[in-house]
Nucleic acid binder design. Structure first.
Lengths: 418, 418
DNA sequence: AAAATTAAGTTTAATACTTAAACAAAGGTA
DNA sequence: TACCTTTGTTTAAGTATTAAACTTAATTTT
């Protein structure tokens, strides 16, 4: 296997070495461009050690020299940087949704090097067919100037975000309703096909990782919780602590849509009553809009929203953005309900950052204004004052970026076994 | 300072050494009693390395040889164990409450070696007075057979649980209403007085640590979330992941009592309406009991609960335990409300263990039966099926044990700087 | 312009650890 | 008694780090 021969990184034998390698790589990613002295000063290691490790990293094409800089009264420092693009190390993150497969190449600097979007054929998607599709996309996404058998050189791994319940440790998709999958060993299949490490996880969680990592670029993972909430047809969330996702025993942590916000309220698909999703998921908002319209202003039904059976979530969101006052009211009502669940989670986790994503999460002021007002009522002052509330910014790239960045950052992490 | 000379542990210089030391100590604590071979087999280290590190640990009186065991066809293995009692290393955990200061000595095996309970003088307690009290208790709690200036030899550190808002990193008590403290640097004061490392944290969180650690004794910290909920006058909780407490940006994580469970319900002291604490805190239950009693069965007022002004939380709980049906109804109503908040947190964190503590949390079936029924309605099936619900078991020792065990376990942890 | 100084990076010698392999100790088995 | 096993220790070789010396290459001073 040419891949293994060329890129298998010579495993730094001692833990000491691994720790120092990781330290240097992390420091360089933050300080870059920087000289060996800078790394020595910042890491506390001797210049000799830094030299030795940097040499290793250069041989492994993880780091490169980019010329000298001005002297400050002595030998010129040689500037180093983490190697950008597909010449160095890179990772590919994929997001699978009902209709699309989006692939994103992330380099060592965390930048996007290439993207590819592919429409999926309608109908049932076999796991094996997906593996094939990804195999082909990987060819598209890798360096076209390299010969085919060299394309995977430098690929650290690939990640895949799947809408469904995934065990991120085994990479098995336990349930993916949209595709009718049950206990599908996607990680295994992909690793066999591509011969690179594969990470499979839930797509919302992958998106959360992306939004969180790129919300404070190039900084260290924070020890404080950061929360990502996705508001759309369904409502989900993810909590990230020290750069790691909270997964839970059965990998369902982050379940946000089934928090009870209206005890005794409408019946939810889960069997409980008054779940957030049942009152503030997009389908519920569309129904509520139609209900109010029929009651109060039947004229609207044909103007902004189209005939009764044709009001889709997308059209509803357009109406909100266009400033439709009735739609605005519906969103404001939803904000009230969302605030109940969100205030609970803010009180409970005391996060430093909350990122609102998903179609509804990104409609802007129509949601944010009533939501922040309601949160002020329902949240304890201290945790609320520490929580920055922002809107997601990566769009459809979030999951791919999250997975890519995660794989990249694993290069500068040390895992102490046991 | 004789303390420093005798016990300062010769800092194992390299990271490699630290990691291996920690690995061996952790393994021994689990396998004990065990021979050097066993440790080598289990840790994957060579017998030579194990010998060298064990020798070090014996010199530092952390480990001791306890004689030979039967041969299996060769030289007899020499059994080792972590040194028990105050001859080896030990830690002291204190819990401060309104009326008591409880101190507990925990040894390397996690066992209680000594305890001391002291009634606090009524009235305002100066921080300096507390420091003095603790200083004296430490004398009581250490080995009476040793000369005074040798008593602190082997003391790894002391911990203190305080009812109030504490920054566990700086050890400053930000607010402790019961004692009228504001931004009090207790850790600093105690370290200056005692010359040992001090950890100060919130008492409920310390109790959570204790209950969680001792619920699965001697096992490794789980990567899955474990939740401790304290139900009493106030309602609080703590979430523990990988053996570490979720603290939050402003150290208020775990706030459970101010989750909205009854939107538009009764006004809470925090300003919000329908908080869990406002409807299921003990004062609310007492009021509710009196309300129902007056309405339905005025005769009870003089029987089980005493005259109107004399029904205390304690008496109410006695009535519950005695099987008073009206009190049972009140608790069942509270269980319904608690289930709303708890279901939300179970869905959100997907814990493997939930420990109910606090006076109300431990009343037994009167709470557990309606609570488990309600949880079944409000929680998603998968997370619920994975969550084991148990009752706290350490009583007043929980916080002290938690702090002691935490300090002890830090001996076998490696912190990678930066 | 030569000499002195400064700074970056490399080499070297000393030190610290780990490990495989040899060895010693102390038992069993045939 | 001879031989094998197992535990624990010692030894020699290999891997890493570091302080200090050294090299390289500039700037500053005289």
């Amino acid at each position: 296997m040419s891949y293994e021969q060329v890129t298998t990184q010579k495993i730094a034998s001692t833990i000491q070495r691994q720790v120092n390698r990781a330290k240097i790589l992390r420091t360089l990613r933050i300080l870059q461009p920087a000289a060996r002295v800078d790394l020595a000063r910042e890491t506390g290691l001797s210049r000799a050690t830094v030299s030795s490790i940097v040499d290793e990293l250069v041989v492994e094409s993880i780091v490169e020299e980019i010329g000298e800089t001005i002297s400050r009264g002595g030998r010129r420092p040689i500037l180093l940087q983490v190697r950008p693009g597909r010449e160095g190390r890179f990772a590919i993150g994929f997001e699978l949704s009902r209709n699309n497969l989006i692939g994103i190449v992330v380099d060592l600097q965390g930048d996007i090097v290439a993207t590819h979007r592919e429409l999926l054929p309608a109908g049932y998607l076999e796991p094996a067919a997906l593996v094939n599709l990804i195999y082909k996309q990987v060819q598209h996404l890798t360096d076209p100037h390299k010969p085919l058998n060299q394309r995977l050189v430098g690929l650290v791994g690939i990640g895949l975000g799947v809408p469904g319940l995934v065990d991120p440790n085994t990479g098995r998709v336990q349930v993916a309703v949209q595709f009718g999958w049950h206990d599908t060993p996607l990680k295994e299949m992909l690793e066999e096909s591509l011969q690179v490490p594969v990470k499979v996880m839930n797509n919302v969680k992958a998106a959360a990782l992306g939004e969180v990592i790129y919300s404070y670029p190039s900084s260290e993972p924070s020890p404080n919780p950061r929360l990502y909430v996705s508001l759309g047809e369904g409502i989900g969330s993810a909590l990230i602590i020290e750069g790691k996702l909270l997964s839970g025993v059965s990998h369902t942590a982050g379940e946000f849509g089934h928090i009870t916000v209206s005890p005794g309220g409408p019946l939810c698909s889960c069997g409980n009553t008054g779940c957030l999703e049942a009152v503030a998921g997009l389908p519920a908002l569309v129904s509520r809009y139609l209900e109010l319209a029929r009651l109060e202003e039947p004229s609207r039904l044909t103007v902004a929203a189209g005939e009764f059976p044709y009001l889709t979530s997308a059209r509803f969101l357009e109406a909100v953005s266009a400033g439709d006052s009735l739609a605005g009211r519906v969103v404001a009502e939803a904000a009230e309900q969302i605030s109940i669940a969100l205030a609970g989670v803010i009180n409970f986790t005391n996060p430093e950052l909350i990122i609102l994503g998903g179609p509804l999460g990104q409609v802007g002021a129509a949601l944010l204004n009533p939501l922040t007002l309601a949160l002020r009522r329902r949240t304890l002052p201290l945790p609320l004052s520490q929580a920055r509330l922002i809107t997601a910014s990566l769009g459809a790239n979030a999951a791919g970026l999250g997975l890519g960045a995660m794989l990249i950052s694993q290069l500068s992490e040390v895992v102490l076994s046991r």
